[in-house]
Amino acid sequence: MPSNTLRTWRNRLGVRMGDDRCYGEDEVRYVLEFLAFRTHGYTLQQYVDYKHGQFQPSMVS
């Protein structure tokens, strides 16, 4: 994956490194959940909206 793609995702999702310059388990899960969401054809903006309760995808019950 191009580094700028991951950088964009991190910025849009609000994922940040800790003081140890590593990502925590919650941050990794958040990105993995986004990737699973993408497999259903949804966009990053739809995922952000979903996480804020503003979008209800048909794949999530």
Rank of each mutant, 00 (worst) to 15 (best):
M1Q: 06
M1K: 01
P2T: 02
P2V: 00
P2S: 06
S3E: 14
S3M: 03
N4Y: 14
N4I: 04
N4K: 07
N4D: 14
N4Q: 04
T5V: 07
L6P: 03
L6G: 05
L6Y: 08
R7N: 00
R7Y: 05
T8P: 07
T8S: 12
T8K: 13
T8E: 14
T8W: 04
W9H: 08
W9N: 00
W9I: 00
W9Y: 14
R10S: 06
R10I: 01
R10M: 11
N11E: 14
N11A: 12
R12Y: 06
R12A: 08
R12F: 08
R12L: 12
L13E: 00
L13N: 11
L13Y: 13
L13F: 13
G14I: 03
V15D: 12
V15K: 11
R16C: 15
R16A: 14
R16M: 10
R16S: 13
M17F: 13
G18Q: 09
G18M: 02
D19H: 06
D19R: 09
D19C: 01
D20Q: 12
R21N: 15
R21A: 15
R21E: 15
R21Y: 10
C22I: 05
C22S: 13
C22Y: 12
Y23H: 12
G24H: 01
G24Q: 07
G24K: 04
E25M: 05
E25K: 12
D26Q: 07
D26Y: 05
D26T: 12
E27A: 15
V28H: 02
V28C: 07
R29H: 12
Y30C: 04
Y30K: 14
V31M: 10
L32Q: 09
L32A: 08
L32I: 03
E33N: 12
E33Y: 04
F34H: 04
F34V: 06
F34T: 01
F34C: 05
L35R: 08
L35Y: 13
L35D: 14
A36L: 12
A36C: 11
A36H: 09
F37N: 04
F37I: 01
F37H: 04
F37M: 03
F37G: 09
R38L: 06
R38H: 11
R38I: 00
R38K: 13
R38S: 13
T39R: 11
T39K: 10
H40Y: 15
G41P: 14
G41D: 10
G41C: 10
G41T: 08
G41Q: 14
Y42E: 13
T43K: 00
L44T: 03
L44I: 09
Q45D: 15
Q45E: 15
Q45S: 13
Q46W: 03
Q46K: 02
Q46E: 15
Y47F: 15
V48T: 03
V48W: 01
V48F: 04
V48A: 00
D49I: 01
D49N: 06
D49Y: 02
D49Q: 06
Y50P: 07
Y50T: 05
Y50Q: 02
Y50N: 02
H52Q: 06
H52F: 03
G53Q: 05
Q54C: 09
F55A: 03
F55D: 13
F55E: 12
Q56K: 02
P57S: 06
P57L: 02
P57I: 00
S58G: 06
M59Q: 05
V60N: 08
V60D: 15
V60S: 11
V60E: 12
S61M: 10
